[in-house]
């Protein structure tokens, strides 16, 4: 379970992760306590599979979810189908209140660019709206959905080409910051007080 320098698997270099994320070394070590809890929920293997990810981060127990799949893929930067601690920490860093707005804009753009074409197309927006309504039990007519999407594209698609590119997305969210609300988890600031047991395993003095 441990490597030669006696650090737990996945937490080999907390200082490097702290330098490359918004978390401090202590916060990285506390985040590892959260990671251990999530990664042992179904299979205690030190890795987060999609089922554990869905249970922990979305509180839904359905077989398939468009957003769970998309968010999991964005966390899974090594495309292995499972998340190691480094991937988990780097992705969650974007959701920290202190993360750069540009990083949140980039992540949210990729989240909504379902087909990863470099732009968000109308059909993708409709698919996401229909999925959201279905998951939340809301029932809106197709006319109302089309109207919402029309209005959204009137606001966002300033180049009038039927799609939203990254520049248009950035302009839209800067005009409407509430669209990034789902990109910030305020409680990540409390990670060390929520998981104080990290101090028993800490191998570094934080600065």
């Amino acid at each position: 379970c441990c490597d030669l320098n006696n650090q737990p698997r996945g937490l080999e270099d907390p200082e490097l992760l702290a330098r490359e994320t918004v978390f401090s070394v202590s916060e990285i070590e506390a985040l590892y306590e959260l990671f251990k809890r999530i990664s042992s929920a179904v299979i205690d293997d030190g890795l987060i599979n999609k089922e554990e990810f869905q249970l922990a981060l979305f509180k839904i127990n359905k077989k398939e979810s468009l957003f769970v799949d998309r968010v999991f893929d964005l966390f899974d930067t090594k495309h292995s189908g499972i998340l190691g601690f480094e991937e988990f920490a780097r992705a969650l860093s974007v959701f920290h209140p202190n993360a750069l707005v540009d990083d949140k804009i980039e992540f949210s753009f990729q989240l909504y660019d379902l087909k990863q074409q470099g732009f968000i197309e109308r059909q993708e927006v409709k698919q996401m709206v229909v999925t959201t309504l279905a998951e939340s039990g809301m029932n809106l007519s197709d006319d109302v959905i089309e109207n919402i999407i029309n209005k959204t594209f009137e606001q966002a698609d300033t180049k009038h080409d039927g799609k939203i590119d990254k520049e248009e997305w950035k302009n839209l969210v800067l005009r409407h910051p509430s669209l990034l609300k789902n990109m910030t988890l305020q409680y990540l600031k409390d990670i060390t007080t929520t998981f104080p047991s990290f101090v028993f395993h800490s191998q570094v003095d934080d600065t």
């Binding site: 959260l34 809890r37 999530i38 922990a56 981060l57 979305f58 509180k59 468009l66 957003f67 998309r70 968010v71 959701f95 989240l111 909504y112 927006v125 996401m128 709206v129 999925t131 959201t132 309504l133 998951e135 939340s136 109302v144 109207n147 919402i148 999407i149 209005k151 959204t152 606001q155 839209l172 409407h176 509430s178 669209l179 609300k181 789902n182 988890l185 409680y187 990540l188 409390d190 929520t194």
Partner: peptide, 30 residues
């Protein structure tokens, strides 16, 4: 011709944000 229904106030991405929201709050409850 008058527009019949109420004006649409919600942006599609506000709606989508409801489903695409991560929720780790259960781990942070005191």
């Amino acid at each position: 011709q008058r527009n019949s229904g109420p004006p649409i106030l919600i942006n599609a991405f506000q709606l989508i944000g409801m489903s695409s929201c991560l929720d780790l709050s259960g781990f942070f409850e005191k």
